[in-house]
Computed example of a mutant assay.
Amino acid sequence: MGAQWKAKHKQDAAAAKGRIFTKLAKEIMVAARNGADPDMNSKLRVAMEAAKKASMPRDTLERAIKKGAGLLDGPVNYEAVTYEGFAPYQVPVIVECLTDNKNRSAQSIRVLFRKGQLGTSGSVSWDFKYLGAIEASPTSPDADPELAAIEAGAQDFEAADEGETLFLTEPTDLDAVSKALPEHGFTVTSAKLVYRPNNPVSSLTDEQRAEVEAFLDAIDADDDVQNVYVGLAG
């Protein structure tokens, strides 16, 4: 979600997988601050499921849990920082970072936004919906996503990749719906708060779109950047 511009581009597989593992490891470390036992820590459990889905090596996953829980090399101090602004051609962008150095992140983001326009807090987020997004796979062929959505308390649902269903929730209901879905025939593989554009830009030429996608790829490749959400029609 939010990274739809990537779909048409084949990236170097090793580099792309490395970046994915780095982002997932950060999510695991942050979640593990509240305990290293996934049975007692729902955020850690979901982060681990996402890592397993991406085929993260077991030793990498376990090291991230230990590091986040303060059992290895001391505590990890990642902070969440959000930036808002515009890509070229006034395409709205929200960038979420997890960083151990806010000054470094701020400097990097300023440089990355030189071809666009960095805004202030609230400058584009007003034109996005902030909601919970849960990816889940059916545990049996007769699992009914509509019934599961109603019973678990989701606001809506839609088809996702690889036969999964995307359940959409109010931000405050994300955890409760995640916990309820397994009772209604679905295994949760990802649960996070996301931004969805209300009015995605669709009037770009192929050349302009390529320029916007290059801008977004450069931001997504930064080590501190965790998620990029963009108001660009698919």
Rank of each mutant, 00 (worst) to 15 (best):
P171H: 06
E49L: 02
D144L: 06
K8D: 13
N77W: 14
P138G: 10
L61S: 04
R114T: 12
L166W: 09
A133S: 13
I219D: 00
E207I: 09
A180C: 03
L166G: 02
W5R: 00
V93T: 00
K129T: 15
A176F: 07
F113S: 01
G122D: 05
A31G: 07
F86A: 00
G153Q: 06
R33V: 04
R63T: 13
R196W: 10
E151F: 09
G85S: 08
T187F: 00
D73W: 09
A13I: 06
S105F: 15
A16G: 09
G35E: 04
G185H: 00
A36H: 07
E213A: 15
K8C: 07
K10E: 12
Q90T: 08
Q226I: 00
E158N: 09
I134F: 08
L72R: 09
R58L: 15
K8M: 13
D39Y: 10
Q226R: 08
N34Y: 05
N199V: 13
S121N: 13
V81W: 05
H184R: 14
S125V: 11
A148T: 11
G122E: 01
K192Y: 08
V111A: 06
F128A: 08
L24V: 10
Y89M: 01
R33M: 15
K52R: 13
P200T: 12
N77M: 09
P141C: 03
G116N: 04
Y78P: 02
G68C: 11
V111D: 12
G18F: 01
L72P: 01
